[in-house]
Every structure is written in structure tokens, then in C-alpha cells.
Design a protein around this nucleic acid. Sequence first.
RNA 1: GGGCGAUUAGCUCAGUUGGUAGAGCAACACAUUUACACUGUGAAGGUCACAGGUUCGAGUCCUGUAUCGCCCACCA
Length: 825
Amino acid sequence: MTNNTNSGGPGFEHNQEPATQNNPKNNIRDTDKPIYKEPNIPAPLLSPYNPALSEPVAISINEKSGLANPDKCIELGLTSTDAPHYSIVLPPPNVTGTLHLGHGLMATLQDISIRFERMRGKQALWIPGTDHAAIATQSKVEKDISKKEGKSRYDLGRDEMLKRIDAFATESHDTIVTQIKRMGASLDWSREAFTLDEARNKAVRTVFKKMYDDGLIYQGSRIVNWDPKGQTTISDDEIVHEERKAKLYTFKYSKDFPISISTTRPETKVGDTAVAVHPEDERYAEYVGKTYDLDFCGSKISVKIIADHAVEKDFGTGALGVTPAHSMVDWEMSRRHDLPVVQVIDEKARMIVSQDSPLYDKEKNIGMKTTDAREKVVEWLREQGLLEKEEDIIQRIGTAERTGGIIEPLPKKQWWVAVTKPFTIKHSNISGVQSGQQTTLKEIMQKAVSEGQIAIMPEHYNKTYFHWIDNLNDWCISRQIWYGHRIPVWYKMGSSDQSSGAISSSAKSEVYCDVLSPTEAGLPDADMYVQDEDTLDTWFSSGLWTFSTLGWPDNIDAKTGETMAGSDLSRFHPTNLLITGPDILFFWVARMILMTGYALGEIPFSKVYLNGIVRDIKGQKMSKSLGNGGDPVEISEKYGADALRMFYAMSTAPGTDSRLDENKIKGFKHFANKIWNIVRFVLTATENHTYDKSFSGWTEKDSVLRAERDDIFKAVTREIEESKYHLASEKVYQYTWSTLADVILEDSKFVFAGNDEEAKLSRAKFLLETIRLITIVAHPFMPHVTEEVWSLLTTGKSLIERVQNDTSHATINPSDLLMAQKWPF
RNA sequence: GGGCGAUUAGCUCAGUUGGUAGAGCAACACAUUUACACUGUGAAGGUCACAGGUUCGAGUCCUGUAUCGCCCACCA
């Protein structure tokens, strides 16, 4: 059990022979003679410390102890129901594969915090879980299936496709859990959640229904970001702009048309309904208000000349062909000027034109692809002598983050969350937002941070946050994919067009939205209802994470609307700390603030710590495509999870990027060994003495040493509280190595060699006290080596020895573990 | 176009009430059966990007410049 993880992987290069690894007693460099002169060093104290051997044992013992569950800690008397609560939710990793070294950073910092607070006697809860990551996961599986079987999701059908995705997600989940556990994360697995499981689905439906009833969720036709590759809508935040070369064409629609326009997309011009010029542009003033009926490349179009401030006078000809159906800007202009919307491109990025149009592919009997149509239109313009200019420009083009498809703006009917629409909030604990008063979701997001209830670290991200909120538009929450929470809306057949894709003018009666489906609710004509095909944006469900994981809405009394006393929700919400990456500040952090504020009238957490990005040694961002992601398990096997954790803690200030340097990690492996050897020295040098809490015969010198030491550990305590893990860990490191080992231990050799018995006694007591304290204070950072050392200090035996004939760890009393000890400062 | 951040030793980075510049790694010299070679000691290494300003005093505060990075945005 303890060493099945290192069966000779490529990264596993220890100086010991594999054959001797199972037995610490054989772990001696020179086979003939023992290297230690002292005859009575206990076997578990042999050197060097071997994390690959010790860590899996410590992890197993920590996990089986159940101490990560605050209820167990209450049961054991380590904390009580009166004690303050401290809770963190693990940002759920996507089930799209495996964790990389960036995840390790977040997990480490959270674990430091939770272990620290647990040792301080709080009811500490850290909740694990994973995220279904809708589009990301589906497109990953789609890609795999397409590659291996040459099939699309439509070939498989919705049910079969979902089965395949579930299978992949399960496998991915299991890998991720193994990885997280190997880092020594003390999560309460009994409360594990998944963003797409049944309990979370209930939370999603409940919030959806509430928002729907409050008029905050609405269905509307708008220009959406359509990803032709993924065949779905995506939100503004999921777009990545890329610079590409493009050609800018300048031309007139026809010989009689008075104004030349410029565009990079001539094929969309068959959908133009206006030409816009700047209101103060004298060149075109005389034409404003006139309408021209034209024949453009086989399509009849009607173009009105309008004046609008959105037009830049000095760009191109200063005139813009307005295509309301296929451009965001143009759409908004069309609303201002009441222009008709003509859709000429479909979901597959093909032209919607009549069969006699030159842009119609007569062989395939379908509209041409937009790229082909573009060439065709340019060709036509040339033939007609309308093309005036053709120039190369660099264009910033929107692409889908997940699939890489080029975004095609299309008018579609989608579900939206209105962020500026006023509603009455029944109950609010958010400062600046009063119970029973009107507010907006945007205001909730603003006030929660601006009133100081939520602190963002580092502070300068406040500005980024507010800037985003100020420019926030309604949130498009529907996705045309299959993997995710299906929209809890049903249409009665015959009365409505249930496809959300098409703009339908049919009357929309008999729309049913509720937590329970018509069948579950027992509607008499339940079988006549058909559920909306679309699923929800993955961030809709992860936005509920802090409270959906704590039993909402089941922990709410249906009659009073109050949170039930003693429930997880009442005990652990709001959570205390969120540690995550700044890249999901908008996606996730802001959405959690929105959702929690709306559903509970609460903040989701009081502190947000945004960690930097872990880069590779060259400074490149870790990514799967570059293959430089790195596996935290591999590093842990090689150097120890403690070493990796110490690296994370010490090399990363909040919000600043760090580079993963194996050399440094190796240095922290040495540090674990240093702790180990300090303990060996102290235990052998103080053989005749025992730890004595009430000892008071300190020499003057040792009193000073004690005071210095305590000052440093008090500072460490303060810095962990303030989430300054880099400062706290550095102090532990510096004190242990440079002060204790290099100065005090060396000095102690003289003390022990001398004949001042009083000084010897005092020093021995000091050292025994100090190694206990260091072990405790270092535990949140390096839980494994410290747990192992603690075992030696308290029982005289190593953990390995203690569980050798006890695989169920029945002989280990959880309360005796270091993890359960009281923080002394 | 707007916003945010960074610039400190060869490398990677710390350094918040403004008070004599720090760590790890690398490199150099020395020590060598020592708790630990996964070691110790010592020395070396910086005009804290640049230019101004405030101050008795600025890596730290203010203004501007340069370079790099990130985020947002509707130049067709």
C-alpha cells in the first residue's frame, strides 16, 4: 500500500537501490558497517529522510483519521460546536483530464490555511469537488471520438453521447482525486460534490426558477457569439481575440450608389440594410435619410443611409455598411434606427441566399461557405468594376476559447440573466443592499466588494473587478450543447416552437418553468410537454458552489425561508477564504458573488486570494498543447509533496507569477531532510532528558533564545492569518535552518561537551521544546515529514513502524496525530 | 483605444506605517568521517529601469519616460 506508486517511473531517480526501499534498516550506503557511531539510534531515525516511503503512510493515516471532517473533530473533543467556523471551498477542477502544477499551488495554499485553522481549534471545513465544465469536457470527448471513430455527436445521439462523456468524466475525476490526495490535501471527502450531480442540479433548478419568476431570466433574440465549430453559443468572456491578416475591400454596392464602403467581409453585405456615416460628416450629409433599393451580387437589398456616432469619420471611407444580423455593433445601430434584420449566414457558417444567387452552391444544393462566398463576391465586384481598393490589414478576430472556431455573430433566441433589471430582494446581509428594497444583480456585485465585505488580494484587482462590472451586459446562459444542466423549461407541444435556435414568431403560451418537471409535478397533460433542448453555461452551476455544496436548498426551511439551525449551511456559510486564479475572476468569482447575493442575500466568502500563474522554467504558461504542464504527483514522488508544497508557499507572493524551478524544489527536499536530522541530533544529544512543559530553570541565554523563537513563530502565525504564506514559510525555513541548525545546534555541542550541568539541562529542555514547536508550526506547510517526526517525538516510533502490522490503522489514535494538535501561538 | 501590473545580485524572486539593501539557486575560496555531503564556514556580487519632485532621509510616496507582460474594448 505504501509504495505502489513508484514502480520505476521515469522521474524516479533516488540514490537508493529500489530493492532496499521497503526496508529502512537496509537503507545504508555502505553495506559493511553502520555509518553511525552511536549504537542506540533507533532504526526509524536512520538517514536520510525518504519522502517517497514516508509520505504515502502519513497521507493514509491522515485520511483514515477522519480529522478533515469537523464533525469528527467535535466528536474527539478537538473542537466544539461553540468554536468559530472556518470554511473554504476547493475551486472544483474541470473533469477534462488531469491536474497540472498550477492546481497544486491553489491546493497547497488552501491546505496551509485549513490545517492552520483546524489546529487553532476552529471547526474547519474544506470541501472538495469537481466541475463538469460543460463545453470544455464535451468538446474534449467529441474530439477523441471524432479522431478514433470518425463520428460526430449527432451520429451518436444525445443519450449515447452523454454516456460517453460521463464515462470520461468519471475517469478524469478519479485521476484528479488521486492527484489531490497525493499532495496531502486535508479535504473532507465525505462532503465531496460535483457541479452536475443530483443535489447540485436541484440547486440549479431552484435558482433558475426563482430568477425566472423574478423576471431576471428571460428569453430573447439577440446577436450571440456563435461558435460554428462547437455548434453553440458562448459568452463574451469565452472569446479570445487573435490577430490575423485580412484584406480590407473598398467598393460601392452598385454604380448608382453614392457612397463607397470598406469591409473585410464582403459576403455579409448581402444582409446589409443600411449605410451609416458620422452625423458631422459633411461629405455624406445630403444622402442621410434616403433609401436605395439595390441588386447586390444576386440579392435584392434595401439600404437606408443613416447617421450614427458609432461611425469613425477617418476610418476607410468614413461610411459603414450595416449588417444587423452579423455584427454586434451593427445590431445595436439597427436597434437605434429601427432597421430590419436580415440573416444571411446560418449556424454552419453557410450563406442563406436564394437558389439563383451566385453565392448558392448548386452542386451541393446549399448556400456556400462564407469563406467561398467572400471570394465570389469579390470576383463579382471586380467584374462589375465596383471594387476600388484592396489592402492588407491586421484584424483582431474573435475565436472560441475552447474550440478555436472563429466566432460568427448570429441573431438567435437565447436565455439571459438581466444584470441591470431592478428586483426586490427579500433578505439581504450585504451592506448597502437593504432587505425588502429594490436592487439589481449588478449592484449586489458592486456593493459586496465596495462596502468592504469581500476583500480581494492583491488589492489592485479591485480596480479590475469594478471595471468589469461597470461594463457588464446581460449574461447569456444558454448553450446548445448536451453536457450540462438542461434548462428547466418545458413547452407544451403545439403551442410553441421548442427549438431555441430559430427565431420564431409563433405565440409562446404554455411555457412551464419549475424545479420539478411536468411529469414529476404530476401535471395531468405532462406527456405533452417537451423540455428546452439547451443546457446552461457551466458557470451558472459553479456560481452556486459555496452554498450548493453546503446543502442548499435542502437546508432551508420551506415554510419560514430560514436556514435550518445546525445545518452545514448555517454553520459554514459564508465561507472564509477563496483561493483561485485571477483568470477566473469574472467567470467565477464575480458570478459566485452574484448568485450568492441573489439566492441567499449573503456574500459567498469574505476574502478572495488571487494567486499568480505557475509558469515553466522558461517563463511560459503551462498548457497541455505545449506539453509543459507537469504532474504534481510526479514531482511529489521525486522530491516529496512536502518539498513541492514548500516551494509553492515560499516562491509565490499573492498575485505574482512564479516559475517552477526543479532545483528549488530539490532544495526543499533537502529542507525536509534537515528537519529530520535536527530531530535525530536533538533526540540523541538529549537522551537522558524528556520534554517538560512546566520546566522553569532556563539559563539567561536560553530565555533569550526562547523569546526570539516565540517572536518568530508569532509572526508566522500572523502572516498565515493574513494569507502571506510566502513570508510565513520563509520565516519557518530561515529559523529552522539558519538559526536553529546552524547556530543553536552548533552552540549546543559545546554546551553538552562542557560541565555546566545547569546549562546542559536548560539547553536540553530548550531543544526538546523547540523541535516540538517547529514541528507544529511547520506542519501546515510540510504535513508529512512533520507528522512522521511527531510520531517519533511522542511515541519513539515512526509512522511506518506503527502501521506495519496494522493496515487499518486501528492502533493509531487520531487525537495523538500532529494534525490534531493545538497551535501554540 | 482604455485599464492594470512588472522593472532590485549572474538567474528566479522577497522587501506596506519612508530610516544602514535580503533569500534561494548558480559561481568562488576553505573545511571533511560531522545530526545532516540532501553538510558547514567565509568572501564576492546591487547608482533597487531612467528623469524629475516631496522629505532631514525614498527600493518604498508623487509626476513623467522607456521596455516587458496581462486584461478589457464595436475601428468596419
